[in-house]
């Protein structure tokens, strides 16, 4: 399935790139749907006007793939967003509180194993107390998703969101080994959060 997926998404990228060249704006090739109702979430029109134009957002709208995953320099911003918007319910490191844990390999909504599915659940909300978080910018949401993927502590084999390359190097997250004393991710000096779609 993984091989197929990559091929398809590459084809989509090309098509979307052509579309973008024609219209000159970020057009979502993917249709993003509410996790519960299936309604079209109308992304990006319904999103925060800021942060729509980054390379990662454009790529995500076209392909449903998050380029920030495991890009070390992009994690600190993701953790910051996580601590502000998610940790209260889901726990400091995704261990679960009022809300379910996010770091294990059990998913209330199995589609959250894909970047697109996780985005839809966060952006549009889900059942119960999981309200929509569409107030965050698309770029912040992608960085947040990268952080959620980073704190994964389950079996790497189940981490469908990682490429085969990433799976080789990914180490399940251990809070106690987390670099800094205050528990926050730190990028190495001079590192910039930069991704390219190629």
């Amino acid at each position: 399935m993984d091989g197929d997926y990559t091929m398809k998404s590459k084809a989509l990228v090309v098509m979307a790139a052509v579309a973008a060249m024609i219209t000159g704006t970020a057009v979502a090739a993917e249709t993003f749907r509410n996790t519960i109702t299936g309604d079209d979430l109308k992304v990006p029109e319904s999103s925060n006007p800021e942060g729509r134009d980054t390379a990662a957002v454009k790529h995500f709208l076209e392909s449903g793939v998050n380029l920030y995953t495991e890009v070390k320099a992009c994690l600190p911003k993701g953790e910051e967003v996580y601590l502000t918007s998610c940790s209260g319910c889901h726990g400091h490191v995704g261990e679960g509180k009022v809300g379910p844990g996010l770091a294990d390999n059990y998913w209330t909504y199995p589609k959250n194993k894909t970047d697109k599915g996780l985005f839809e659940t966060i952006y549009g909300g889900a059942q119960g107390m999981m309200g929509p978080h569409s107030d965050l910018t698309l770029d912040e949401l992608l960085k947040l998703m990268a952080w959620i993927r980073h704190i994964y502590s389950g079996d790497v084999a189940d981490a469908d969101w990682l490429t085969e390359e990433q799976k080789k190097t990914f180490k399940p997250y251990k809070p106690e080994e987390h670099a800094s004393a205050d528990g926050s991710a730190k990028a190495a000096d001079g590192d910039e959060c930069k991704v390219s779609a190629n």
Partner: peptide
């Protein structure tokens, strides 16, 4: 009822 309602697994979840 939060465990039942929100599909929680961990015994410490749901406060």
């Amino acid at each position: 009822g939060v465990g039942l309602v929100f599909d929680l697994q961990d015994p410490t979840a749901g406060l």
